[in-house]
Design a protein around this nucleic acid. Structure first.
Lengths: 339, 339
DNA sequence: CCTTAGCACTCGGTACTTCAGAGTGCCAAG
DNA sequence: CTTGGCACTCTGAAGTACCGAGTGCTAAGG
């Protein structure tokens, strides 16, 4: 009962603070939310909440502001994932439906997400490590030069240049192409290395150097450079945060310039949940201590393949943001599965 | 004589303001630069310069600040393009030498440029419109589905999905591939459409729908979607400008999010010069009125193919920036020509 | 035991004033 | 044309006062 009211107070504080960006006091609280008690009572509750570390005072004579811990409780127990409004949903579908290829889907998604949430958006390309090979093509560019094009089931295309030690014979190349595809097509990336062990032994001695060069390129493509790509958008929204509340945007911009950081942001989702929220200092990345990150996985044909997310101030609208991120994740999953 | 000193004064004002970011007064000027005359004389010159619109006063009792026009004069007549320092040059060469493919070159270049100039860097991919086809590959993905991979001499790769109206015959496909390459390989993009007119007539009636689908894809790749790509980096430097001088970074960030804008920034170089400077309002793009843009072309095998550049505050170090941008442009031109 | 009215207290923000200093423009003399 | 002198302007810092929002505490009431 009492406990209930305290939570209600916390919720009210979070909601008010998120919408006004100003410390909220006991009087304003009873006026805006009908809590049925007097400001004095609220003050007692607030003192208790402060003792427990959920809220804090910027200075003695100011209202209260939620702490990271307060937001955490709010997200875990007090907020609901708000679905997209019908017009938003409609806008999303219309905007994404026009995408012509994978690059286009990713670019559009990041724009969409940034626009809907008014925050910085991150979109990760379907992970290669969870993908299958669709086809491998070998293209002769010059006498000793090949290009390998690896087509992934998600629509991604990887290419590598290969320099061969000796001039290439067209018929050998055709043979290699056919056998290679027989071997790796439809295989998940993870099992390609195994499939290709001792592959070169099936070829004539003279041809093995070339075969090995090709195998090397293929292996590199499926193992070494699984560099997951992340696209970023909506950074201009960062500038509007600082107007409302003190926060240095420079470190945030710096952090967001590193692909590695973006990958960590998206990658470290706690395993089970489809949607993950990391609040303020919970965030492991220096420079982003005063931001929150909301991420969601998306799946292709039921298999989770990558994540999308947004980065915003800790005082964000968690309900709305979580709803939007989730909705977009689900929808692009569907789009990718259709292909 | 007199005219000369006025120019010297303007130069001194620009240099001082660029380094201190504070309005510069007559007294400070004679102290820091040995102009051989008294502050009063400088004041007269300043008044004249102000009349001509080269400098201005933020408020009555402050020193002078260069106007866009002042910077323009400075750049045109008073500054020299400062070459990279040996360590910088060394750093550049080492950093770019490790690049493994075109994407890598572009990404590294943008990082390098942002780091050397401490500004926002833009790097444009080699333009397709000035490129030649190296090879066209057709890959059968399913019974009625093809992927076309177009390899450009600059190392860029474009791909398109093609849905054929009827099942594809492998031998027809091989024939098409061979003839298509005979037709377009080594051709500049601009002459491909002509080469392919009436190309389908060489095939049997039954195969023509497929041939036409392929031709359509190729034509689309070489004409319609010549979407020049631009990569962007170093946006965090924007945040440090505002500390020193009033400038809203939000509109700048917004503008830089649009590929179209980036292309205009890089594309509208005045034709002859290899290096172009656009100062403040000279800039045609809304949101960038208080920034300057320094761009340079780069060439591949003597042919200019695209541009790189930086965006920074109007009070930038023009000499150094121009030198850096030019050096980087020349160097990546050399790298690309080697491939 | 919880609630609440009353009250004293704290302290940030605003408004106002004052003051010093930097910088200018102008004038008259060299 | 240059320069020293001088009056003038205006910003920015520093100091002061004050209002008001907000709190914590206490004592009374349910």
């Amino acid at each position: 009962m009492l406990e209930d009211r305290r939570l209600a107070v916390l919720r009210a504080i979070v909601e008010d603070f998120v919408s006004t960006h100003e410390p909220v006091g006991s009087k304003a609280l009873v006026e805006r939310h009908n809590l049925g008690v007097s400001p004095a009572t609220i003050r007692n509750d607030m003192a208790a909440l402060e003792d427990e570390g959920y809220i804090t005072q910027p200075h003695t004579s100011a209202g209260r502001v939620p702490t990271d811990r307060g937001y955490r409780l709010f997200v875990d127990r007090l907020s609901t994932v708000k679905p997209l409004s019908p017009p938003e949903r409609k806008a999303m579908e219309r905007f994404l439906a026009d995408a012509v290829d994978l690059d286009d889907v990713m670019t559009r998604t990041v724009r969409l997400l940034a626009q809907l949430t008014r925050q910085v958006a991150l979109v990760q390309y379907p992970s290669l490590s969870r993908s299958k090979v669709r086809h491998v093509e070998l293209i002769q560019l010059s006498e000793t030069r090949l290009m390998m094009v690896l087509i992934v089931d998600s629509g991604r295309v990887e290419q590598r240049m290969i320099d061969c030690p000796a001039p290439i014979d067209a018929s050998v190349l055709a043979d290699l192409r056919a056998r290679l595809n027989a071997m790796v097509a439809d295989q998940p990336f993870s099992s390609v290395p195994e499939s290709l062990t001792a592959f070169d032994e099936k070829f004539a001695n003279d041809d093995r150097p070339m075969v090995r060069a090709v195998i090397g390129a293929v292996l590199e493509a499926v193992t070494e450079r699984l560099d997951e790509r992340v696209v970023l958008g909506g950074t201009s929204h960062l500038a509007s945060y600082q107007t409302s509340f003190p926060m240095a945007i420079q470190p945030v911009l710096e952090a967001l310039e590193e692909q590695v950081v973006l990958l960590r942001l998206l990658g470290e989702s706690t395993s089970e949940e489809t949607i993950t929220v990391r609040i303020g200092h919970e965030n492991p990345i220096s420079g982003l201590e005063s931001t929150s990150v909301v991420t969601a996985r998306y799946a292709r044909a039921e298999q989770p393949v990558a994540s999308i997310g947004v980065v915003g101030p800790t005082h964000m609208d968690y309900s709305g943001t979580m709803g939007t991120v989730q909705a977009v994740a689900q929808y692009i999953g569907r789009i990718l599965s259709d292909q």
